[in-house]
Design a protein around this nucleic acid. Sequence first.
DNA 1: AAAGACACCTGGGAGC
DNA 2: TGCTCCCAGGTGTCTT
Length: 270
Amino acid sequence: MPELPEVETTRRGLERLIVGRTIANLEIRERRLRWPVGNKVAAELEGRRIGAVERRGKYLLLNMEHGALLIHLGMSGSLRYLASPDAPRRHDHADLCLVGGGCVRFNDPRRFGSLHFAADPARHRLLKNLGPEPLGESFTADYLWASCRGRRVAIKQHLMNGRVVVGAGNIYATEALFRAGIHPRRAAGRISRGRLAILVARLRDVLADAVERGGTTLRNYVGTDGRPGYFKLELDVYDREQMPCKTCGTPIRRIVLGQRATFFCPCCQR
DNA sequence: AAAGACACCTGGGAGC
DNA sequence: TGCTCCCAGGTGTCTT
Protein backbone atom coordinates (compact mmCIF):
# COMPACT_ATOMS: atom_id res chain seq x y z
CA MET A 1 0.00 0.00 0.00
CA PRO A 2 2.34 2.69 1.03
CA GLU A 3 3.98 4.77 -1.65
CA LEU A 4 6.26 7.68 -1.02
CA PRO A 5 3.65 10.03 0.50
CA GLU A 6 2.48 7.40 2.97
CA VAL A 7 6.03 6.56 3.98
CA GLU A 8 6.87 10.25 4.31
CA THR A 9 3.78 10.81 6.44
CA THR A 10 4.89 7.95 8.65
CA ARG A 11 8.43 9.36 8.81
CA ARG A 12 7.20 12.76 9.95
CA GLY A 13 4.93 11.28 12.56
CA LEU A 14 7.71 9.11 13.92
CA GLU A 15 10.37 11.80 13.88
CA ARG A 16 8.41 13.98 16.23
CA LEU A 17 7.99 11.14 18.69
CA ILE A 18 11.17 9.09 18.78
CA VAL A 19 14.21 11.17 17.83
CA GLY A 20 16.49 11.35 20.84
CA ARG A 21 14.87 8.33 22.46
CA THR A 22 16.81 5.23 23.42
CA ILE A 23 15.78 1.77 22.31
CA ALA A 24 15.07 -0.68 25.11
CA ASN A 25 14.56 -3.66 22.81
CA LEU A 26 12.99 -4.91 19.62
CA GLU A 27 10.37 -7.49 20.39
CA ILE A 28 9.72 -9.66 17.37
CA ARG A 29 6.68 -11.88 17.34
CA GLU A 30 6.78 -12.93 13.70
CA ARG A 31 10.13 -13.31 11.95
CA ARG A 32 8.68 -14.42 8.62
CA LEU A 33 8.51 -11.09 6.84
CA ARG A 34 9.67 -10.65 3.26
CA TRP A 35 13.07 -11.73 4.52
CA PRO A 36 13.41 -13.60 7.80
CA VAL A 37 14.31 -11.19 10.58
CA GLY A 38 17.57 -12.44 12.10
CA ASN A 39 18.62 -12.26 15.74
CA LYS A 40 21.27 -9.73 14.79
CA VAL A 41 18.71 -7.00 14.17
CA ALA A 42 17.39 -6.83 17.72
CA ALA A 43 20.85 -7.30 19.18
CA GLU A 44 22.15 -4.26 17.31
CA LEU A 45 19.43 -1.98 18.62
CA GLU A 46 19.41 -2.44 22.37
CA GLY A 47 20.54 0.60 24.27
CA ARG A 48 21.06 2.67 21.14
CA ARG A 49 19.84 6.22 20.74
CA ILE A 50 17.79 7.20 17.69
CA GLY A 51 19.46 10.21 16.11
CA ALA A 52 17.18 10.78 13.13
CA VAL A 53 14.35 9.29 11.13
CA GLU A 54 15.07 9.42 7.40
CA ARG A 55 13.47 8.10 4.24
CA ARG A 56 15.06 6.73 1.09
CA GLY A 57 12.43 5.92 -1.50
CA LYS A 58 9.92 3.82 0.41
CA TYR A 59 12.43 2.71 3.02
CA LEU A 60 12.45 4.27 6.46
CA LEU A 61 15.78 4.58 8.25
CA LEU A 62 16.03 4.95 11.99
CA ASN A 63 19.56 6.25 12.30
CA MET A 64 21.82 5.43 15.19
CA GLU A 65 25.50 6.15 15.66
CA HIS A 66 26.60 2.74 14.43
CA GLY A 67 24.09 2.20 11.65
CA ALA A 68 20.39 2.21 10.89
CA LEU A 69 17.28 0.13 11.26
CA LEU A 70 15.83 -0.23 7.76
CA ILE A 71 12.07 -0.59 7.60
CA HIS A 72 9.96 -1.28 4.52
CA LEU A 73 6.17 -1.37 4.77
CA GLY A 74 5.58 -3.56 1.73
CA MET A 75 1.99 -3.51 0.46
CA SER A 76 0.10 -3.55 3.71
CA GLY A 77 2.43 -2.42 6.48
CA SER A 78 2.04 0.43 8.92
CA LEU A 79 3.81 1.78 11.97
CA ARG A 80 1.99 3.21 14.93
CA TYR A 81 3.33 4.86 18.01
CA LEU A 82 1.75 3.72 21.23
CA ALA A 83 2.42 5.78 24.35
CA SER A 84 1.17 2.97 26.54
CA PRO A 85 1.19 -0.24 24.51
CA ASP A 86 -1.81 -2.49 24.81
CA ALA A 87 -1.88 -6.19 23.96
CA PRO A 88 -0.69 -6.86 20.39
CA ARG A 89 -3.33 -7.88 17.88
CA ARG A 90 -3.28 -9.95 14.75
CA HIS A 91 -0.41 -9.03 12.40
CA ASP A 92 1.34 -6.86 15.00
CA HIS A 93 4.66 -8.50 14.16
CA ALA A 94 7.12 -6.37 16.11
CA ASP A 95 7.41 -3.68 18.78
CA LEU A 96 10.32 -1.28 18.99
CA CYS A 97 10.20 -0.57 22.70
CA LEU A 98 11.68 2.67 23.99
CA VAL A 99 13.31 3.43 27.32
CA GLY A 100 10.85 5.36 29.46
CA GLY A 101 7.80 3.70 27.88
CA GLY A 102 6.09 3.82 24.52
CA CYS A 103 6.73 1.73 21.45
CA VAL A 104 6.58 1.75 17.69
CA ARG A 105 4.43 -1.15 16.57
CA PHE A 106 4.86 -2.75 13.15
CA ASN A 107 1.72 -4.26 11.67
CA ASP A 108 1.69 -5.94 8.27
CA PRO A 109 -1.03 -8.43 7.25
CA ARG A 110 0.62 -9.52 4.02
CA ARG A 111 4.15 -9.64 5.43
CA PHE A 112 5.76 -8.09 2.35
CA GLY A 113 7.48 -5.59 4.62
CA SER A 114 10.96 -5.98 6.04
CA LEU A 115 13.29 -5.12 8.91
CA HIS A 116 17.06 -4.98 8.47
CA PHE A 117 20.00 -3.57 10.34
CA ALA A 118 22.52 -1.79 8.11
CA ALA A 119 25.88 -0.61 9.43
CA ASP A 120 26.31 1.43 6.25
CA PRO A 121 22.82 2.11 4.86
CA ALA A 122 23.94 3.83 1.64
CA ARG A 123 25.76 0.67 0.60
CA HIS A 124 23.11 -1.75 1.71
CA ARG A 125 22.05 -4.01 -1.16
CA LEU A 126 18.45 -2.80 -0.96
CA LEU A 127 19.40 0.87 -1.17
CA LYS A 128 22.56 1.12 -3.23
CA ASN A 129 20.90 0.84 -6.65
CA LEU A 130 17.98 3.17 -6.01
CA GLY A 131 17.42 6.09 -8.36
CA PRO A 132 17.01 9.73 -7.30
CA GLU A 133 14.30 11.06 -5.03
CA PRO A 134 11.46 12.51 -7.11
CA LEU A 135 11.25 15.53 -4.84
CA GLY A 136 15.01 16.04 -4.82
CA GLU A 137 17.20 18.23 -7.02
CA SER A 138 18.70 15.47 -9.13
CA PHE A 139 15.37 14.34 -10.55
CA THR A 140 15.31 16.72 -13.49
CA ALA A 141 13.86 16.74 -16.99
CA ASP A 142 17.34 16.10 -18.38
CA TYR A 143 17.83 13.14 -16.10
CA LEU A 144 14.48 11.55 -16.97
CA TRP A 145 14.99 12.21 -20.65
CA ALA A 146 18.43 10.55 -20.57
CA SER A 147 17.02 7.56 -18.70
CA CYS A 148 14.36 7.11 -21.38
CA ARG A 149 16.73 7.07 -24.36
CA GLY A 150 16.39 3.88 -26.34
CA ARG A 151 13.83 2.40 -23.97
CA ARG A 152 10.82 0.73 -25.46
CA VAL A 153 9.22 -0.04 -22.12
CA ALA A 154 5.92 1.73 -21.33
CA ILE A 155 6.54 5.05 -19.61
CA LYS A 156 4.44 4.00 -16.64
CA GLN A 157 6.60 0.97 -15.98
CA HIS A 158 9.71 3.07 -16.47
CA LEU A 159 8.44 5.55 -13.88
CA MET A 160 7.74 2.74 -11.43
CA ASN A 161 11.24 1.32 -11.82
CA GLY A 162 13.08 2.13 -8.60
CA ARG A 163 16.40 2.32 -10.41
CA VAL A 164 15.02 5.20 -12.48
CA VAL A 165 13.28 7.12 -9.73
CA VAL A 166 12.06 6.01 -6.32
CA GLY A 167 8.71 6.42 -4.69
CA ALA A 168 6.39 6.46 -7.70
CA GLY A 169 4.13 3.51 -7.03
CA ASN A 170 1.04 2.44 -8.90
CA ILE A 171 -1.24 5.22 -7.69
CA TYR A 172 1.07 8.17 -8.15
CA ALA A 173 2.64 7.00 -11.41
CA THR A 174 -0.89 6.65 -12.75
CA GLU A 175 -1.97 10.05 -11.48
CA ALA A 176 1.17 11.85 -12.64
CA LEU A 177 0.70 10.53 -16.18
CA PHE A 178 -2.87 11.78 -16.20
CA ARG A 179 -1.81 15.21 -15.01
CA ALA A 180 0.90 15.27 -17.68
CA GLY A 181 -1.47 14.11 -20.44
CA ILE A 182 0.74 11.16 -21.36
CA HIS A 183 -0.65 7.74 -22.27
CA PRO A 184 0.70 5.20 -19.76
CA ARG A 185 1.56 2.72 -22.51
CA ARG A 186 3.60 5.12 -24.60
CA ALA A 187 7.18 3.90 -25.09
CA ALA A 188 9.53 5.81 -22.79
CA GLY A 189 11.97 6.50 -25.59
CA ARG A 190 9.31 8.03 -27.80
CA ILE A 191 8.32 10.95 -25.62
CA SER A 192 9.71 14.39 -26.32
CA ARG A 193 11.96 16.05 -23.83
CA GLY A 194 9.41 18.82 -23.35
CA ARG A 195 6.68 16.39 -22.38
CA LEU A 196 9.05 14.58 -20.02
CA ALA A 197 9.78 17.92 -18.38
CA ILE A 198 6.06 18.28 -17.75
CA LEU A 199 5.93 14.76 -16.37
CA VAL A 200 8.73 15.53 -13.91
CA ALA A 201 6.82 18.59 -12.71
CA ARG A 202 3.51 16.77 -12.41
CA LEU A 203 5.02 13.81 -10.55
CA ARG A 204 6.52 16.24 -8.06
CA ASP A 205 3.17 18.02 -7.73
CA VAL A 206 1.11 14.92 -7.17
CA LEU A 207 3.54 13.55 -4.57
CA ALA A 208 3.75 16.87 -2.77
CA ASP A 209 -0.05 17.23 -2.77
CA ALA A 210 -0.44 13.73 -1.35
CA VAL A 211 2.12 14.34 1.39
CA GLU A 212 0.17 17.47 2.24
CA ARG A 213 -3.00 15.38 2.68
CA GLY A 214 -1.31 12.71 4.77
CA GLY A 215 -1.15 10.16 1.95
CA THR A 216 -3.80 7.99 0.32
CA THR A 217 -5.83 5.45 2.24
CA LEU A 218 -7.51 2.85 0.05
CA ARG A 219 -7.80 0.03 2.52
CA ASN A 220 -5.69 -0.19 5.61
CA TYR A 221 -3.05 2.49 5.56
CA VAL A 222 -2.87 4.58 8.73
CA GLY A 223 -0.31 7.12 9.91
CA THR A 224 1.59 6.78 13.19
CA ASP A 225 -1.40 8.23 15.01
CA GLY A 226 -3.73 5.63 13.52
CA ARG A 227 -5.51 8.10 11.23
CA PRO A 228 -5.98 7.49 7.49
CA GLY A 229 -4.73 9.71 4.66
CA TYR A 230 -7.06 11.95 2.72
CA PHE A 231 -5.60 12.07 -0.78
CA LYS A 232 -8.09 9.52 -2.13
CA LEU A 233 -10.47 12.41 -2.59
CA GLU A 234 -8.11 13.99 -5.10
CA LEU A 235 -7.48 10.98 -7.30
CA ASP A 236 -8.32 11.82 -10.91
CA VAL A 237 -8.08 8.41 -12.53
CA TYR A 238 -6.85 5.73 -10.14
CA ASP A 239 -9.59 3.19 -9.39
CA ARG A 240 -12.09 5.24 -11.42
CA GLU A 241 -12.76 2.85 -14.31
CA GLN A 242 -15.85 3.86 -16.34
CA MET A 243 -16.31 7.04 -14.32
CA PRO A 244 -16.15 10.31 -16.25
CA CYS A 245 -12.82 12.04 -16.69
CA LYS A 246 -12.79 15.10 -14.46
CA THR A 247 -11.48 17.15 -17.38
CA CYS A 248 -13.44 15.99 -20.44
CA GLY A 249 -16.09 13.55 -19.22
CA THR A 250 -14.81 10.60 -21.27
CA PRO A 251 -15.08 7.32 -19.32
CA ILE A 252 -11.81 6.36 -17.62
CA ARG A 253 -10.31 3.17 -18.95
CA ARG A 254 -8.52 0.37 -17.14
CA ILE A 255 -5.73 -1.67 -18.70
CA VAL A 256 -3.02 -3.89 -17.27
CA LEU A 257 0.65 -2.95 -17.61
CA GLY A 258 3.35 -5.10 -16.07
CA GLN A 259 0.61 -6.98 -14.22
CA ARG A 260 -0.57 -3.78 -12.56
CA ALA A 261 -3.93 -2.10 -12.99
CA THR A 262 -3.53 1.15 -14.91
CA PHE A 263 -6.14 3.87 -15.38
CA PHE A 264 -6.18 6.65 -17.93
CA CYS A 265 -8.36 8.96 -19.95
CA PRO A 266 -8.24 7.89 -23.62
CA CYS A 267 -9.05 11.44 -24.66
CA CYS A 268 -6.71 13.51 -22.46
CA GLN A 269 -3.72 11.16 -22.52
CA ARG A 270 -1.74 10.53 -25.70
C1' DA B 1 21.30 -5.21 -21.29
C1' DA B 2 16.41 -4.96 -21.32
C1' DA B 3 11.88 -6.68 -20.62
C1' DG B 4 8.67 -9.74 -18.76
C1' DA B 5 6.98 -13.26 -15.52
C1' DC B 6 6.84 -14.83 -11.02
C1' DA B 7 7.41 -15.02 -6.26
C1' DC B 8 6.20 -13.81 -1.43
C1' DC B 9 1.12 -13.36 1.78
C1' DT B 10 -3.47 -12.20 3.80
C1' DG B 11 -7.94 -9.99 3.62
C1' DG B 12 -11.87 -7.91 1.49
C1' DG B 13 -15.36 -7.74 -1.80
C1' DA B 14 -18.13 -9.59 -5.65
C1' DG B 15 -20.81 -13.17 -7.35
C1' DC B 16 -23.18 -17.40 -6.89
C1' DT C 1 -24.42 -17.62 5.27
C1' DG C 2 -20.78 -19.51 3.14
C1' DC C 3 -18.02 -20.80 -0.57
C1' DT C 4 -14.85 -19.58 -4.57
C1' DC C 5 -12.52 -16.38 -7.23
C1' DC C 6 -10.26 -12.17 -8.07
C1' DC C 7 -7.95 -8.20 -6.70
C1' DA C 8 -4.86 -5.20 -3.88
C1' DG C 9 -0.71 0.67 -2.41
C1' DG C 10 5.87 -3.40 -3.65
C1' DT C 11 9.92 -5.12 -5.45
C1' DG C 12 13.72 -8.64 -5.65
C1' DT C 13 14.93 -12.45 -8.53
C1' DC C 14 14.78 -15.49 -12.22
C1' DT C 15 13.99 -16.41 -17.23
C1' DT C 16 13.87 -15.10 -21.91
